[in-house]
């Protein structure tokens, strides 16, 4: 890694750390407790940014998949795959924190609501993405296949959402936003979103770097074997 990268990474890590500390302080000290749902509403400040990041991650995968199929540069494949990894982890967190919030507020862990169901289907699609990648017989194939799934899977998202929305819906937003979002709440949410977006960028850079490194090592190995 050259000096430029190290500097950029240090700045990003610093920024991420500072934002995360600020976010935690705002969530637990600064922001007033919401009147209707009480203290549990504080999950919202991490749940929503995590959900946002997972959608962002799959969108980035969609774009890098197209770029990979077009340019055939290994860097785009590395970014797409790293982004799916981070996206799946964050979607898992959405699916865990959602029910934890729903249980005390609605009295149930799970409901087949549009948002919840779409997240679940998304999670399943990108788990399949990672599976195909690890089951593909050679690296070039893995890259092409996963790019195709990255594109097809993302196009599926709005269709799933529309379908499930018509199927049955129970609006969680209506409950969260009851009484509106006061300025301190909005501020806190925005800081949290910023903190998680920086965390996402950091994780993807790190993970994509490793993937490129892995591919390089594999290439060197096969060159040596010849």
């Amino acid at each position: 890694m050259n000096g430029n990268h190290t500097l950029r990474n240090s700045i990003l890590w610093g920024l991420g750390f500072a934002l995360m500390v600020a976010a935690l302080c705002m969530v637990f000290v600064y922001v007033p407790t919401e009147k209707h749902t009480g203290i549990i509403q504080r999950i919202f400040y991490f749940h929503v940014p995590v959900a946002w990041v997972s959608f962002l991650a799959f969108f980035i995968t969609f774009l890098s998949s197209i770029l990979y199929l077009w340019k055939r540069e290994i860097k785009w494949d590395a970014i797409a795959c790293a982004s799916v990894e981070v996206g799946v982890i964050f979607t898992t967190l959405v699916l865990i924190t959602g029910p934890i919030w729903a249980k005390p507020v609605w009295g149930i862990w799970w409901t087949w609501d549009a948002r919840l169901t779409t997240s679940l289907v998304l999670w399943l699609i990108y788990i399949a993405y990672l599976l195909v990648r690890s089951f593909a017989t050679e690296p070039a194939r893995a890259a092409r296949y996963s790019a195709v799934i990255g594109i097809v899977g993302f196009i599926d998202v709005p269709i799933v959402f529309i379908t499930v929305n018509l199927w049955r819906t129970q609006h969680p937003t209506a409950i969260i936003f009851e009484g509106g979002l006061t300025p301190p709440m909005l501020m806190t949410l925005l800081v949290c979103i910023a903190a998680f977006t920086v965390l996402y960028i950091l994780l993807v850079i790190q993970s994509a770097g490793l993937k490129t490194m892995e591919a390089d090592i594999k290439r060197l190995r096969s060159m040596k074997a010849e």
Binding site: L124, I125, V132, F135, G153, I159, V160, T163
Partner: peptide, 27 residues
């Protein structure tokens, strides 16, 4: 066409196919 070139191809197709066609099944 994609699953046929992976290992464990018999399980790869349903794992890939089913979540994507959820809208078709529901409709």
């Amino acid at each position: 066409a994609l699953a046929v070139n992976t290992r464990a191809r018999d399980i790869m197709l349903p794992v890939l196919f089913l979540p994507v066609v959820v809208p078709v099944i529901v409709s």
